[in-house]
């Protein structure tokens, strides 16, 4: 016999591997079904926790993006001084954006909200605009809001700086907790699904340990023994992954629609790129888990 390289593959070997895989699937149909269901259930849980994580993180982002600092310029500043102030704040490294609402704009809006015509309010006020120029500042990182606000207070020309202290101080720990919870849920279910699947594969390998032992004794290479298990794991994982993707995909669509109708204030992530990423990720994860799990469970039995 010539050596066939590390994987021991040749045309007849490939035939053999395919035949063995099919035989094994036919021989233990219930074990195959059990494996598929295990992969499916684990991946469904994993898929939903991935969407939970996405939503948790989205919600946290949304809450945090609403945190902003309102800084009011002293009323005696000229228009150009206010613009210089705006540029100065923009150049600060922690600042994401600055939006300037001039006192004229503010008065206009205020007037409109009272239902009056342009100019009416100004003349009613005796020709002077009492409103200050307002600078709305957003921080790069919501965690830095308090520090940034303190720094802004020190700037000359700014009068009042406020950022809804009470809300932010409560919101930040909450969003941090929300992200952690999402990550922990995904992590825990990943581990749980790996354990479930590896138990299943071990049963399969165990039921064929005699065959493996004999193959070893007649001189089959480890790769030759491994291939049928890998292909089988791959197929079972693939089927389980597709079923899981269907369930998660349809389930999430339905859930998102339902939440939108009943709890409109709760924003659900409706990002279709993410949606397909998660679904294809599930199928890929199923195949990877099946193949790697098989190879891993075999290790013990290959040491004959």
């Amino acid at each position: 016999m010539k050596r066939k390289g590390l994987t021991g593959m040749s045309f007849s070997s490939a035939q053999y591997i395919l035949r063995e895989t099919l035989n094994s699937l036919k021989r233990n149909p219930w074990l195959s079904v059990a494996s598929i269901v295990t992969v499916m259930v684990s991946l469904v849980i994993l898929g939903f926790s991935a969407f939970f994580l996405a939503n948790a993180s989205n919600m946290a982002n949304m809450f945090e993006s609403q945190v902003e600092i309102a800084a009011f310029a002293q009323t005696n500043l000229s228009q150009s001084e206010v613009l210089a102030l705006e540029d100065r704040i923009k150049s600060m490294p922690q600042v994401a954006s600055v939006e300037l609402v001039t006192k004229d704009q503010a008065l206009l809006e205020f007037g409109q909200s009272l239902g009056g015509k342009k100019g009416d309010l100004l003349s009613d006020l005796g020709g002077t605009n009492p409103l200050p120029d307002k600078l709305t500042v957003k921080a790069n990182d919501p965690q830095e809001v308090a520090g940034l606000a303190a720094e802004l207070t020190k700037l000359p020309g700014l009068e009042t700086v406020s950022y809804g202290q009470g809300v932010v101080d409560k919101l930040l720990p909450f969003t941090r907790w929300l992200r952690w919870l999402g990550a922990v849920v995904v992590g825990a279910f990943t581990v749980a699904s790996l354990v479930l699947i590896s138990i299943n594969i071990k049963m399969n390998v165990f039921s064929r340990r005699r065959e493996i032992q004999i193959m070893k004794l007649v001189g089959a290479s480890n790769w030759f023994i491994r291939w049928p298990f890998l292909v089988e794991g791959l197929i079972l994982g693939w089927v389980g992954g597709i079923l899981a993707a269907l369930i998660v995909g349809l389930g999430y669509r339905w859930l998102a629609d339902y939440v939108q109708m009943t709890l409109a204030f709760l924003p659900m992530v409706q990002n279709s790129a993410l949606f397909w990423q998660v679904l294809f990720g599930l199928i890929f994860a199923g195949m990877a888990i099946g193949a790697v799990g098989s190879a891993f469970s075999l290790r013990k039995f290959l040491r004959v």
Partner: peptide, 11 residues
Amino acid sequence: GFALEVLGVPA
């Protein structure tokens, strides 16, 4: 034939 098949001998 098993002993030959695992060596990749043609059918």
